[in-house]
Amino acid sequence: MATEALALDGVDALYGESHVLHGVSFALGEGRVLALLGRNGAGKTTCMNTVIGFLPPRKGTVELFGEQVARLAPDVISRKGIALVPQGRRVFARLTVRENLIVAYQKRGGTWTLDRVFALFPRLKERAEQDAGSLSGGEQQMLAIGRALMGNPRVLLMDEPSEGLAPLIVAEVGRTIARLKGEGQSILLVEQNIKLAFELADDVVILNTGRVASSGPVAAVRDNEALITQHLGVF
C-alpha cells in the first residue's frame, strides 16, 4: 500500500454515554478512495464527525500523513488539510454561492481556486451571486463539494454525496468523484449507494454497530455475497 493519508487506530467515540464507535481502525492510502459502508446507524457518519473534529474521540488516534489530529478543534483540523462534504450538504444558506466558496478558501499549495471550481461546476458560476439557500439539491451538493475543494484538502471526506439526488445528478456526482480521484485526491467516502461505492472505491471498510466488520480491496468485498448480505443487507 502507498503512504497512509489518513489512519484511524483504536478509535472509541461516544455521544454522551452511548458508545457509538468501538476501537475502529482503518487506513486510507494516498491517492485512493476508501468507501466506508454499513447499515444505518453503523457509525459511518460518526467516523466522519470524529475525523473532522465535531466529535473528539474518547480513545485512539487519528493521523493525517502521520500527524496526530485527534481531539483538535475542527477549524484547526481543517487547516491541517481535511475537508468535509457533510451529509445534508449544509451550505451557508444566507451567503451567496461565491461567498460560500471564498470563505472556505485555503491555499496550501493546491490548485483549487474559485475559477477552477467554477470551471468544474459551470452551474455554480451562473448562480454565483444567488443565496445558496435558493439552489436546488443537486446544485447545493455541487456547492458543498466545491466548498470542500476550495480548502485544497489533502484528504476529502464525503458523507453521502448522492443522497436525495436525481439519478442524472448522481451520475454527475459520480463522475466528479472519479475525476478527483484521477487527479490524485485521497477520498474517504461514505455512501449508501453500494453500486456507486463499488464503482469508485479502491478499498472498502464495512462497519457494523460501531466496529469494523471487514476491510480489504474492493475486489475482495464486491464478490463476497455472504459478507454483503450479512453486513449491508442488500442484493
Binding site: D75, L84, F92, A93, L95, E99, I102, V103, A148, G151
Partner: peptide, 25 residues
C-alpha cells in the same frame, strides 16, 4: 468582505464554518 462573509457563515452554521477552517470562536 471575506471577513464579513466568514462572520455570517459562523452565525449561520458555526460547526460547518469551523469545518471549512474558519476560526469561529
Amino acid at each position: 468582505t471575506r471577513l464579513g462573509a466568514m462572520i455570517r457563515a459562523g452565525v449561520d452554521d458555526p460547526d460547518m464554518a469551523s469545518a471549512v477552517g474558519i476560526p469561529v470562536s
